[in-house]
Simulated scan of single mutants.
Amino acid sequence: MATTVAVVRETVAGERRVALTPEVAKKLKARGARIVLQDGAGASAYFADAAYADCEVVAATAALEQAEVLLKVQPPSLDEIAALQEGAVVIAHLQPHLAPERTRALRDRKITAFAMELLPRTTRAQAMDVLSSQAAVAGYKAVLIAAEAVPKFFPMLTTAAGTIRPSKVLIVGAGVAGLQAIATARRLGAQVEGFDVRPETKEQIESLGAKFLDLGVSAAGSGGYARELTQDERDRQQQVLADHLKGIDVVVTTAAVPGRRAPRIISAAMVAGMKPGAVIVDIAAESGGNCELSEAGKTVISSNGVSVIGTVNLPASAPVHASEMYARNLYNFLELSLKDGALNLDWNDELIAKTCLTHAGEIKHEPTKQLVESNA
Rank of each mutant, 00 (worst) to 15 (best):
G216Y: 05
G42R: 01
E86F: 04
I164K: 11
P258F: 04
L215T: 03
V7H: 00
I145L: 14
S167N: 07
L78Y: 09
S207F: 09
L84D: 09
A181H: 06
G289H: 05
L338W: 07
H365Y: 15
E324M: 12
D214Q: 05
A242T: 13
R227N: 12
A183D: 10
E23I: 07
A226V: 08
L106D: 10
R165F: 12
V240E: 13
E86T: 15
R234Q: 14
L208D: 08
F333G: 03
Q66P: 02
G173C: 02
E148W: 10
I266S: 00
P263G: 02
I91R: 04
I171L: 07
Q66K: 15
D340M: 08
V36M: 07
A63W: 08
V172E: 05
E324I: 08
S374F: 11
S207T: 11
E233F: 01
F47H: 01
V36G: 06
T21C: 02
A316P: 03
P22V: 03
L245D: 07
V172M: 14
S374A: 15
R109A: 15
Q74I: 08
M116H: 07
I111W: 04
I111M: 05
A33L: 00
K168P: 01
L229G: 07
G247H: 13
N348M: 11
A262N: 00
S222V: 13
A262K: 02
K298P: 04
G14M: 02
D108H: 06
V306A: 08
V150G: 07
L71A: 04
Q204C: 02
Q239T: 13
T254I: 01
A92P: 02
G40I: 01
K202C: 07
V7C: 02
Q134S: 09
L245I: 03
A210S: 07
E362W: 08
K29E: 15
L78M: 09
A190Q: 03
V251R: 01
S167K: 05
E335R: 14
T4I: 15
Q95A: 14
G297N: 07
R198K: 12
Q66V: 06
I35F: 06
